[in-house]
Every structure is written in C-alpha cells, then in structure tokens.
Design a protein around this nucleic acid. Structure first.
Length: 685
RNA sequence: GGGCCAGUAGCUCAGUUGGUUAGAGCAGGGGACUCAUAAUCCCUUUGUCGCGGGUUCAAGUCCUGCCUGGCCUACCA
C-alpha cells in the first residue's frame, strides 16, 4: 500500500440541550465506520468531536431549571459520551466548545477576520422580551402573519408560505414569557461573506470537496446571488464567549461551534505530544467533516470562508448524509418514534443498529428509513444466519485439530473474496457502505453453499476422512474470518469475538489477503443474537412512556411559564431531605384567629399576638413580622400556627407557638391564612 | 414562490460513459438436508423502469413538460 495518509475526521458537534437519539446515531455510526476503516487501512486517523454548548437555548434551559449553564452542559456532555461509548464510537478525543482552548482559538480566528477587513457593524432591529431581559431569536416569537392574517404563526414564516421578519408580525408574543416583546435596536457584527464569493464559488464547484448534489444546491440557492452578510454577534445576555474587542457582545454559537473542531484537536495534541499545525495547517493532512444535510450551509459556506480567511486548511471533503425516518415517517415524539440512544442500548445490541445503518447508507443525501421489521430480518438473516453461521457450524469440528497447515483447494473462493478487497475498500472510502455490505454478503452467499456441498457433518462420521474434514472447516473458518475483516469497521464487537475464537488479532485490511493456518480454534461461543421482537417492542413501549412523561412535564412547565415564577427561591433554599407522614403529623398545625396584635416595647422585629383556637383556648405568640405587618392589619385575621411547639421563654415573655409565613424577610413576609370558612382550632393536614 | 434530490418487482435497493430477452437480497411458493442460534442449500412466481412528448439504429439511462414524495430556503441548533 502507498504511504499512510494522515486524516482528521469529525462528526458534527451535538448540541448540549438534549439527549442523543437514534437519528443522531446515523451520523456518528457513519463517521465511526469511516474512521475505523481508515485505521484498518493503516492510515493515521484522528477522530475528534465535542459538545456544542453555547447559545440562547442552553441559557434559557439553565434559567428554567434553576441551575447554571455549566451544570447543564456538564451533565449533557456526560450523557452524550456515555451513549456514544455504548455504540462503540471511537473518538480519539471528545471536547467541549466551552473550553479555554476554544475561547483562545476563537480569539485568534476573530483577530484574523478583523485584519482581513471582513467585519462590519450594523444595527439590527429585533424583538426584546422585557420580562426575561433578552433578545428573542425568531423561533421564540409567535404572532399573526402580516400577509394572510393567520394567527399563532412562527417568528419568521407562516403556513401560507410568506416569510418575514419577526418585527413585522402583528401582535407578536414571546414564547418564553408569553409577554408582548418590544422592538429594540442593537449593534451586531457581521462577516461580509460576499467578499469571499469568488473563492467559495471555486471551492464548492471544483475539486471533490462536496457531493455533487450539495455543490448544485449551493450553486442554485446561494451562489447565484450576492451572499448575505452573516450576523455573528449577539448582545448580552447570551451564553457564550464575549467578543474581546466588543464588550457586551458575544459570538453567535455558530461562529464558535466549528472552531470547536480545531479546539478539540488542540486538546488532543496537548495531551498526546502533537502539534495542532500538523493537523490544521499541513498539506499532508486531510480533513473530513461528516454532517447532516440540515447544516450544509454552515459547513460549506461560512466555515470554509472562516478557514480561508484565517489561514487554516480547508476541508478535504464535507460528507453530507440524510436524516433518519422511522417506519417511513419523520421521527416525532408524538408518534413515539423519537427513540433515544440510551433506550435503544437498553434493549438492543448496538452492533445490530450499526450494521443496519451501514446496509442503508450510501454516498447520497437520501434519508434512510428504519423499518423495524426490515431491521430485524436484515440483521437476523445477514449477520446471524449467513455470516456468524459460517463459524457456528464449522468451528467445533476444528476443536481437536485446529486449522490445517496449508490452505486447501477451495475452488477459488478465498481468492475471489480477496480480489474483492479493493472494490469493498473503494465503497467504504466513498461512504457507499450499502454497496460494501452487498459485496460482503455476496461473498457469504458463496461460502454457505460450499459447506453445504462439502458436507462436513458427513465427513465427521468417517474417521478416514478426518483430514478432509479439517480442510473443509479450515476453508469455512477462513472465509468467515475474511468477512469479519471486511466488516471490522462496522462491527468491532464481532472482531473481538473472532479474535477470541481464533487467537489472532485483526488489525489490518490486508489480513483478508492471506488465510490463517496451523493455529488452534477455541470453543465457539455465540457471537451475535437474533433480534427478539419483544425487545423491539419493549424499546418502543419505553419510548412511548418517555414521551408521555415528557409531554406531561412540558405541559406543566408551559403552565408555569404563564406565571413566570422565578426558580430563585428553590435555588437559595433547596427542598429538605425526604420525611415520612409520621414526621409530618408530629407538627400540629391549627387554624387560629388573631384576637389581638400589639407592638412589643423594646423589640425591633417582634409583634405580640394573642391567637384564639376557638372557645377560651388562647395562645400567646411572639412573631417576627413587625417589618411587614401593622398590628391593626392582623387583628381578626385567620392564620396557621404550629400549636404543639414547645413553649419558649423569650426576653419579652413566653411564646407558645409559631405563625406560619413565607418570604425573603424585611417587608416581604407573607403570613399564611386559610380561605374564609375555616374555623379556629381546626387542624391543618 | 425559488432551489436540490428522488420515483425500477409486495419491501429495500443495484443498474457504470445510452447497446443483446431489466438484476440482487428479503418476503411468497415448492423441494432437500440436519453440522449450525428452526439456521443452511436447490428450484421458482412477480415489473407499461411515475406519466406524456422528443433525440437516436438503440433510452431505465440523454433532453423537455407534467404528476407524486423528501429536504432546504441563512439572526433554531
């Protein structure tokens, strides 16, 4: 083989605002297969990714959940990495866009862009949520379409097909606070992409950087007209990096996210004694991005533009894939097809999904469909019935003897599959995994009839044919091993199990060229299970349950948002340790009437209350509510008191209970009082 | 509205630069075998290649119009 290539591989950065689902996994599995393939070919591969952590969505979520952004993104990173590991995604490094390295690199990139004269400032009119104190991105606004008058339309376009600016909406409403936003103007920083038009035209239309559909799409959609300026700043408050030479402004998340590819590479370099320039500024290195078709323009216009302006290498190729549909329909929570990676892992072997995706993925942008019935039969038939079966049916005959010392005549089967190596490799290289799987399965379909004709089970019965039996099974096992080598990028687990069976490591694509001979064969253990339809059902059921729980939670939070209650009180005083009903009934709460309230001579905070519990039952209570209540406001009022509190001697007398109240203190104290009709002396439970 | 892409057997798809009677796998039907995770093997049914025009000796393949579907349309990631 020629000199090893040096290849940097990336998958798109998942947003830190939600769990990984099986739609995401299309991309990570596609990329991982490619990265593993390149390693198997002997190339030097660095596969990096990171969580994409900035932006309004994260900020709002942190606010809503009453915790810090850092807390949100840390949790997200952990769950993302756990899911990826579960599916065997072989990142060399997984970083975060909220890192020192990224901040620094963003600064450097920004500096260069400034120097190139690409930055300009413009006033932008945007809707501002006065209640939340934040500008509203289009998707956080709803209102009436200015053209057709339809109500409850999205911030930037209407069902009628009309597009507009949210500022033009009639009766706009903020979807985060429910209030009416006002139009405010703010200074934004823009990158003048049009200056790079010629370069982008050439870069996208020539060479092999993009799939032809993508190049055509860009040509037809963007490059025909002047490129619009790209708005890359957001005014505070915004969760992101503040722009060093423009205080109060932050880089828009899509500015710093792709730079995260470089930052993540840098983190790996720092930990592995390598140099970032060797990956991003060297002519010897290829850079391959894998992305979904929804983020094409970011990666094929903005990103190359930024790289060009800053002197980093341009991507060698941007590989774009389609979306996942489930049973023919777009994944949607309400259909119960929004299957989380975590849920999938709980019930299914990740190898099954890896193989299924591989068998569906081609080099085009077509969506791929996860038809659950097809998924099951494909995995069962191809992997278990045809491929693993080769080992399963022959391995045990070789237990006593091991593999033959010389490779027997197999009628050219091994050679034929060995000759397929280049074509299969070519298919992997082109991301045409569907074709690679077809070629591999064709080889398996030649191997099974061979065994059928050779009839090892008949040879077994005749001791004089022991040698022949060994030869037949040596062929079968080698044909099997050859398939496993070809499938290694897709099925790392199967590789491990094959290594255990044959006591030989699979580390190189070229191992498929020569048979394994003269070595022992271990006891065969199941390598892959058929898919139990019940497991699929469980996965779907669990997904449906999650969706129902989610819906309930979001309905509740929608109600809560109407009142716009701050999460601060809970943050300041988190809920106490759990108690039992027994603990609770120990506290005897009673309705009481304030019979008399008066100032206490010499006390700053106390009022003296005489509380009546009905009849002649009275209690004397000192309450620290002077800062919020006047005595005359309290007299006659019904309150709730702790009636069995141990009396306490105070400087001004004996206090025989406690009045329940809430609030921060000072003038913000709110005494609890039952609605009219409650009778003094009644117990509160 | 504009743009990109797709439409081939019941299902998932292959069909290279136009070239003999359009292929594979799965599913369906029949048979064989029993080593294997009821796996495997052999035989077998099925097509107005979305529709209409055009170019050509020759069109699933090229051009054009239409129909249907998916996706995109930049301050949502």
């Amino acid at each position: 083989m020629s000199n090893p290539r040096k290849i940097l591989v990336t998958s798109a950065l998942p947003y830190a605002n939600g769990p990984i689902h099986i739609g995401h996994m299309v991309e990570y599995i596609q990329t991982d297969i490619w990265a593993r393939f390149q390693r198997l070919r002997g190339n030097e591969v660095l596969y990096v990714c990171a969580d994409d952590t900035h932006g309004t969505a994260i900020m709002l979520r942190a606010q809503k959940e009453g915790r810090s952004e850092l807390d949100v993104i840390a949790e997200s990173s952990q769950s993302h990495q756990r899911d990826f590991a579960g599916f065997g995604i072989s990142f060399d490094h997984y970083g975060s866009t909220h890192s020192d390295e990224n901040r620094e690199l963003c600064g450097q990139v920004w500096q260069k862009i400034r120097e190139s004269g690409l930055v300009k400032e413009k006033q932008v009119e945007q809707l501002f949520d006065t209640e939340k104190g934040t500008f509203l991105a289009d998707r956080f606004v709803k209102g009436t379409c200015p053209k057709c008058g339809k109500t409850d339309q999205a911030g930037d376009n209407c069902e009628c097909g009309h597009t507009y600016s949210p500022v033009d909406l009639i009766d706009p409403l903020s979807t985060i606070s429910g209030t009416t936003p006002e139009v405010r103007s703010a200074n934004h920083l823009f990158i003048e992409l049009e200056q790079l038009h010629e370069f982008l035209n050439e870069w996208t239309q020539s060479g092999d950087h993009l799939q032809t559909e993508v190049a055509n799409y860009l040509k037809g959609h963007f490059l025909g007209d002047a490129l619009r300026d790209w708005d890359i700043s957001r005014p505070a408050p915004y969760f992101g990096f503040e722009i060093p030479d423009s205080p109060g402004d932050y880089w828009y998340v899509w500015f710093d996210a792709p730079i995260g590819y470089i930052a993540s590479t840098k983190q790996w370099c720092d930990a592995n004694d390598s140099n970032i320039d060797a990956w991003w500024k060297s002519d010897d290195t290829e850079i391959h991005h894998f992305i979904g078709k929804d983020i094409v323009y970011f990666h094929t216009l903005f990103w190359p533009g930024v790289l060009k302006a800053t002197g980093f290498n341009l991507p060698t190729k941007v590989h774009v894939h389609g979306f996942l549909t489930v049973d023919g329909k777009k994944m949607a929570k309400r259909d119960g097809t929004f299957i989380k990676a975590e849920t999938c892992l709980k019930h299914l072997d990740p190898s099954a999904l890896r193989y299924f995706y591989a068998s569906k993925l081609g080099p085009k942008l077509d969506d791929i469909d996860l038809n659950l019935e097809e998924f099951r039969t494909k995995v069962d038939t191809d992997l278990v019935n045809k491929i693993v079966n080769l080992a399963s049916r022959c391995a045990k005959f070789l237990g006593p003897t091991g593999l033959s010392d010389t490779y027997p005549d197999d009628g050219g089967l091994f050679q034929q599959a060995a000759d397929d190596a280049d074509e299969i490799a070519g298919a992997y290289e082109d991301c045409d995994y569907n074709k690679a799987m077809r070629l591999i399965l064709a080889a398996a379909d030649r191997a099974n009839p061979f065994i059928e004709n050779a009839q090892p089970w008949v040879l077994k019965k005749d001791e004089s044919k022991a040698r022949e039996l060994q030869d037949v099974c040596t062929i079968a096992i080698n044909l099997f091993r050859q398939l496993v080598i070809y499938l290694a990028p897709v099925l790392p687990e199967l590789v491990t199990k094959t290594e255990d069976l044959l006591g030989d490591k699979i580390t190189s694509w070229d191992q498929a060229q020569s048979p394994l001979l003269g070595t022992p064969v271990n006891k065969f253990k199941h390598m892959m299970k058929r898919i139990d339809p019940k497991d699929i059902q469980k996965m779907m059921d669990e997904t449906a349950e999650e969706v129902a729980a989610d819906a309930a939670a979001s309905a509740a939070s929608e109600l809560a948002s109407k009142y716009n209650d701050s999460p601060q009180p809970l943050i300041d005083k988190p809920i106490s340790e759990e108690c039992t009903i027994d603990d609770f009934v120990k506290v005897d709460l009673r309705v009481a009437r304030v019979l008399q309230a008066q100032h206490v001579e010499g006390a700053d905070k106390l009022l003296q209350l005489t509380l009546g519990l009905g009849g002649n039952e009275k209690r004397n209570v000192f309450a620290g509510i002077k800062s919020a209540y006047k005595p005359e406001d309290l007299e006659g009022k019904l309150v709730v008191m702790v009636a069995n509190l141990k009396p306490r001697k105070m400087r001004f007398g004996l206090s025989e209970g406690m009045v329940c109240a809430a609030g921060a203190g000072g003038s913000e104290i709110f005494v609890l009082s039952p609605d009219d009709g409650a009778l003094p002396g009644q117990r509160v439970t």
